[in-house]
Structures are given as structure tokens and as C-alpha cells.
Amino acid sequence: MAIAYRQRIDDDTEFALWRIEEEATDLYSQLQLNQQEKDFVESLSNGKRHLHWLGTRVLLRKMLRTDEYIDCKVDEHGKPYLVNLPYHISLSHSFDYAAVMISKTHKVGIDIEQIKQKVERIANKFMRKQELAFIGGRQKIEQLYVCWCAKEAVYKCNGQKEVSFADNILLEPFQFEHHGVVNAQLHKKNNVIDYTVGYMQYEDYMIGYVKGE
């Protein structure tokens, strides 16, 4: 399958979605992997995790428009980075989709989640009371997924561990639209970083994406 959706944020920043319809062997054949990566792929049981890892790497290759080997590693905080290419990257996946965001000039973060009712049961684990106060109405579930995806995107963009969604990432009130923005602040130690997070509903998925420093 080709790229399902692509959006350019600015001249140097974009994200895309890939609907994973291929078998693992088809995705694998489109990649160049070193031995360590081959061993890692073989260690994954056949299933969604296997397809997600392959799907994000195939999409990354398509977005970078290269047939050469891409040295993509993960740092001590779990943030993926490219060793020999001048791009910041962020990867995400959920059920049938892989999502990748790239930028030459800014840190980035992206998250994709399939929309399900169960998010309401765990809302108090990632939202403050004042945030929950502006959530409601017939699109409550969609709003909650915007909040989750926005906080996850900020977390990935920041790229540091020991950040609590409820305690450190705060969202300003917003009205849900199918494609909109929400303002966020990351509070860590004595620093406050402002973010404007884009979000969009795509089929029954929610995507949050952000461009940082």
C-alpha cells in the first residue's frame, strides 16, 4: 500500500500515515537492515508489534526517499534518531496504521491512537481535574483522545524520561474539531516550554503532532 495520508507542516517538516495491509515478508523485503536489526526483527513474534516495527521503517524510508541503508537507533530515553541523516524523527503506530514525522530543523513528536470508549475509564490517570472540567458533550471521547495524543506528542518531542502526563504536561481548554490545535505547556523542574499541538481525526483514529525547538 502507498502512503495513505501526508501533511506538510512547513518547508522542512511533514508527517505521513501508512495503512499496514502487507504481510510481514512484504514489508521486510522493502528494508535494508544490519545484522542487529535482523536479529531484533526475528525476536519479535509474528503479530501487530512485528508489523508495526516494519511498517514505521518502511514509511520512514518512503518519506526520506532513499534506497540506501538508514541507520535508525534509539537513545537512552527511548527516542529514535538517525545517525547519518540530518532529520529529527518521531514514530508511532496503532492497529492498522504506522505514523512518521520528520523535520530537518525542529524536534518533532507524533502519536496515533485508535478511538475507543475505554479511554474514559483512564482519563484521570493522564488528565488534571481542571483539564477534565473542559471535557464533555457528545464528542467527549474524541476530546479525550486529542488530549492523550497531544500529551504523547509533546512527550516524544521533548524526548526525556520522568515526565508525567498529568503532572508535567498541561493543556489549555479547546473545542473539538476534526482538524485543529491545542495549546500545551511542559513543566519540568523550573522550566516551562510552550507547544502548539496539531491534531486531526482520520477515520476512527486520532493523531497528535507537534513541532518543537
Rank of each mutant, 00 (worst) to 15 (best):
G137L: 02
S45T: 03
E22W: 12
T25F: 10
L54I: 05
D96N: 11
L54S: 05
Y205P: 07
I115A: 05
E22N: 11
K211W: 00
K125N: 09
K189H: 01
C147T: 02
Q185T: 10
I141E: 12
E23T: 13
H106W: 01
Q30V: 09
Q139H: 13
E162N: 10
G180P: 00
T66K: 01
L64M: 14
I110Q: 00
F15W: 09
K151Y: 01
T13H: 04
A166G: 09
L144P: 06
H50L: 08
K38C: 11
Y155I: 01
Q30R: 12
W148A: 04
L31Y: 06
M127C: 12
L51V: 01
K73S: 03
H187V: 02
F174H: 06
R138V: 06
D11T: 14
E14L: 13
G136W: 15
E76S: 15
H88S: 10
L132D: 15
I169Y: 02
M63Q: 10
N34Q: 09
E213T: 11
H77L: 03
D111V: 07
E14S: 11
A153V: 02
V58E: 09
Y97R: 04
D10N: 11
D39Q: 01
D71H: 14
Q35I: 04
Y195A: 05
E68W: 10
I89K: 06
K125V: 15
E213M: 05
I169E: 00
N46V: 13
L186E: 08
I135S: 09
G180L: 10
D167A: 12
V83K: 09
T56P: 10
Q114E: 15
F176Y: 05
I135R: 03
D39C: 00
L186Y: 00
Y97C: 13
I115D: 08
L82P: 00
H50R: 11
G78V: 08
H77S: 12
L31P: 09
P173I: 05
S45F: 01
Q175T: 14
